[in-house]
Design a protein around this nucleic acid. Structure first.
Lengths: 337, 337
DNA sequence: TTGTATGCGTTATCAA
DNA sequence: TTGATAACGCATACAA
């Protein structure tokens, strides 16, 4: 049987109230009795039941974290950021992987709430908006990750995907490329749609017209990247792009494949820039020039924001936007004039 | 203010006991009153406070999960297996990433216990044995992952690393290779040491002698793989291995690099077999022949075992061993006689 | 079939 | 500076 505050009180010959006082470092306790109590605590290796404490304090010091798929290479670092930052606030994190299933998302929220988490950090692919609205109505602290929005339903930590799309494309333009294709995840995925916007904006700012034939879309995986790249390479050589901005590193890896099977070289024949700076970006050859998205920092910022939400009694609806960064490696070349 | 069992009782004009009864699907309640209660529950969208319930039941329905580094590509899938299987048991999982820090491991255990988790699944690099012994003395349910041992301190889910090392080496032997090198993580890392054992055993069974010059060790990362492979390639051509079994896919990716920079081809000049079947194994070119380690299933099995531990009042000290599987891709060639 | 009273381990209120 | 008591939200022994 676990030792409780009562056992400590008994053996220190004081009341439970007093034990509670020293547990919470209250000043109003004589140093002798404090010592007595601390000795008993040490002797019994007593550690307070935080669950019981939470029951009376109405604060569990647990946050929920929901992702659609932790094997997506962007999430593990995010998770680390959340866990470590959470720990610095004295918070633990309860974790759910929903496998992109809306029903499971809903269930995860219900479960986490009945487990009395103080707030939830979540990343839903397509905003499960009704759920969020409901949570918001109840003033339940929520932070959503990766959902930049002009009219956010809840507080949000987002990457500036328009900037990153712009940045990637501008870099290619800078090096003399003008026929720049884009492999996207399509308009249906918010991040993809935003990166596409950035791409278009960069082209426009350079005075180039937008050619929809140069924009292909597929799932976020290597296979789709390969398929799209094959299509681009099937164009007559004159119409073939000299550079491609690809929405995700994993798709870029697939694109590499299509390029190599055609007997072409990167970046000599075609330049590639990815997005996300995942581990593979450094493992494929040539190393992939890409955009870093500060996943760890995003997780940390998410916790910071959630803590603000928890401390506030009204929803803040803040939006923290993180600026991505270009990582230059070896997959892009300067185009001769 | 959250709605409680008392609110429901009041509005259904019954006692809290009755509400509790319908909440727990007890048979001894008239169907009319059951309906009354259920209506009130629906009306208020009431969901019981599982924390309070746990306080009286002495069961939180939460398990802890501690890993040294979730960005290690083996862990996300493991985590998924644990979360999903846990959910099927009605369990949530509280997650810690310790960044390989023993102090943090210790703190994580303390924190999880004071949060009243019913058991912990953990993966420590070097068994933090004192901690485990202590937990065991208290009969606290623990399952350790990846620590195969003849004399396990606690219940364990392990990969049969000796088999996998054997399997990888035997495959190379089968294809005619006799000068087979091994890039390892060294004796200090248990899994590495075991895979090395398997390697040696396979050589011995084939009547080949062990050449310690062909066994190099480094950290589990691409850089180390590259460094070790460079060393192997610096041997006079006659002494150069025709095949290398590499302890981790990530190291293999680095090894690829060293091979390409020498102007050699895989598998034409040198065959490579990896270990783990991580995502990169399919993204690098040629696709890496490797050993699958059933990470998701390992996670599931870990939960199954932990549930058994939780239901039992005495530690079971069981060991579940999962057999790895060879995944043939394109990085190994058959050697002409 | 239903309700009253008690307790789970803790903190807060109030009085001493 | 200390302690008795109630309360947090729930489940259960026991009584009715």
């Amino acid at each position: 049987m676990a030792v409780t505050i009562r056992d400590i009180a008994k053996h220190a010959k004081v009341s439970v109230t007093t034990v509670s006082r020293v547990l919470n470092n209250r000043p109003d306790v004589k140093s002798e009795t404090r010592e007595k109590v601390n000795n008993a605590i040490k002797e019994f290796e007593y550690s307070p039941n935080i669950v019981a404490r939470g029951l009376v304090l109405k604060r569990s010091h647990v946050i929920g974290f929901i992702v659609p798929d932790i094997t997506n290479p962007n999430f593990p670092e995010l998770a680390r950021g959340i866990v470590n930052k959470g720990r610095s606030y004295g918070y633990s994190v309860m974790f759910y992987d929903t496998n992109h299933d809306h029903k499971v998302e809903k269930e995860a929220i219900r479960l986490l709430r009945s487990k009395q988490v103080d707030g939830i950090i979540l990343s839903f692919n397509e905003a499960n908006k009704e759920e969020l609205e409901k949570l918001k109505l109840e003033h339940f602290p929520i932070v959503q990750i990766y959902r930049k929005s002009n009219n956010p339903v809840v507080s949000t930590i987002a990457l500036d995907n328009i900037s990153s799309g712009y940045m990637a494309t501008a870099y290619l333009l800078e090096l003399g490329h003008t026929k720049i294709a884009h492999i996207s995840t399509g308009e249906g995925v918010q991040s993809g749609s935003e990166r596409l916007q950035g791409y278009r904006k960069a082209l426009a700012d350079a005075g180039l017209s937008y050619d929809e034939n140069l924009v292909l879309a597929g799932e976020n995986d290597a296979e789709a990247g390969k398929r799209c790249m094959r299509k681009l390479l099937s164009f007559p050589e004159k119409e073939r792009p000299t550079a491609v901005f690809i929405c995700h590193d994993s798709m870029a890896a697939g694109a590499y494949d299509a390029i190599f099977e055609k007997g072409l070289a990167i970046p000599d024949d075609i330049s590639i820039i990815g997005h996300d700076n995942n581990q593979i970006a450094q493992l494929i050859r040539p190393k992939l020039t890409t955009i870093d998205t500060f996943k760890y920092e995003l997780g940390e910022a998410g916790v910071d924001l959630l803590m603000k939400e928890i401390r506030n009694d009204k929803p803040l609806n803040e939006e923290v936007v993180i600026t991505p960064k270009l990582i230059i490696r070896n997959s892009v070349r300067k185009l001769a004039k």
